[in-house]
C-alpha cells in the first residue's frame, strides 16, 4: 500500500475538506513528537460527514470559485462532486489509496496514478497527490519536536517530519500543531535540499458537535508563483448516514 500521508491537512480538507477534530480535554504535558502526531491523527479520524464548500483559486489570470459537496467516511474514503456551473457533475472519488476522476463528457473513469497525481486540481494550488493522504504519518516520517511557536495567536508545537523512504510526496514537512486543540494550524512542505514547496494555513476554525473544524484554509504552492487557493467550508453535517455504495466506481458514473 502506498502511503502519502504527509499531505493529510489538505487531503482531509479537500476530501470533503473534512478534518473533524476532537477538542482535546486538556493541554498535553511533556508529549513527544510522535504522541502529538498521534493525538492529531486521532482527532482527524471521524466516521462520516457531508459538507458543502467552495474553493477560491487565484492566479495571474484572476480569481475563480468552484463549489462542491463532499461525502467522507473515515480517513481514506471520500467523494467530492463539483456543483459550480463550470465544473458541474465532475467528481473525484478516493477509495483506499486510489483516486478516480469522473467527467460527464468522458465515457471512462480516469484513475490517476504515478506522476499524474502531481497534477493540479482544477488549476489550484492543491495537487491530486495532496488528496491521497490518510493516517500513518509516523509510519512514513520520523517526527522531531523542534520547538514551540505562535501561529495566528495560537501556541503550537513545531514538529519536523523527515521522510523514512521515497514513497511520499514531500521529503520534509514542518507541522505547527495547536498545543490545546491538536489541530494543525500551519504546515510547510519542502523539497529535498530544503526548498519550500507549499504552505498551508488554517485561517479559521469552528466548533461543532464537540469537534474543532477548519473552515477556512489557504494553500500556497510556492513553485507556481500563484496567489494561493482558499478553501472555505460553508456547511457541515457530521455522523450522517451515507447512501450505500456511494464510494463505489459504479456510483461514481451515475
Amino acid at each position: 500500500m502506498k502511503h502519502q500521508t504527509g499531505r493529510r491537512i489538505v487531503a482531509t480538507v479537500v476530501a470533503g475538506l473534512a478534518a473533524l477534530l476532537f477538542v482535546a480535554p486538556a493541554p498535553a504535558q511533556e508529549l513527544t513528537a510522535e504522541e502529538i502526531i498521534e493525538r492529531m491523527e486521532e482527532n482527524q479520524t471521524h466516521s462520516t460527514s457531508i459538507m458543502e464548500g467552495r474553493m477560491i483559486i487565484t492566479d495571474r489570470f484572476g480569481e475563480r470559485v468552484s463549489t462542491y459537496i463532499a461525502h467522507t467516511e473515515g480517513a481514506d474514503r471520500f467523494l467530492v462532486e463539483f456543483t459550480s456551473r463550470d465544473e458541474e457533475g465532475q467528481r473525484i472519488l478516493r477509495r483506499d489509496d486510489n483516486l478516480y476522476l469522473y467527467y460527464p463528457d468522458a465515457r471512462e473513469v480516469i484513475r490517476l496514478q504515478g506522476s499524474a497525481l502531481r497534477d493540479s486540481l482544477l488549476g489550484s494550488d492543491i495537487s491530486y497527490e495532496d488528496m491521497t493522504g490518510g493516517r500513518g504519518i509516523i509510519d512514513d516520517y520520523r517526527a522531531t519536536l523542534i520547538g514551540e511557536e505562535e501561529v495566528n495567536g495560537r501556541p503550537t508545537y513545531k514538529i519536523r517530519l523527515e521522510a523514512r523512504g521515497t514513497n511520499v510526496a514531500y521529503p520534509e514537512q514542518v507541522y505547527y500543531v495547536d498545543r490545546e486543540e491538536f489541530v494543525v494550524r500551519k504546515s510547510e512542505q519542502f523539497a529535498r535540499g530544503g526548498r519550500l514547496l507549499k504552505e498551508t494555513l488554517i485561517l479559521e476554525t469552528t466548533e461543532q458537535d464537540g469537534y474543532i473544524f477548519p473552515t477556512h484554509i489557504e494553500v500556497i504552492d510556492v513553485t507556481r508563483g500563484s496567489s494561493g487557493t482558499e478553501m472555505i467550508i460553508d456547511d457541515v453535517q457530521i455522523g450522517v448516514s451515507l447512501p450505500a455504495n456511494i464510494f463505489s466506481l459504479e456510483e461514481l458514473t451515475w
Binding site: 492566479d59 475563480r64 468552484s66 465544473e87 465532475q90 476522476l101 463528457d105 468522458a106 488549476g123
Partner: peptide, 13 residues
C-alpha cells in the same frame, strides 16, 4: 483530460 476556457479541467472521450 484537458483544460477549459474557464480555466477548469474537463475530460472527454
Amino acid at each position: 483530460l484537458t483544460q477549459t476556457r474557464l480555466r477548469t479541467s474537463n475530460a472527454f472521450t
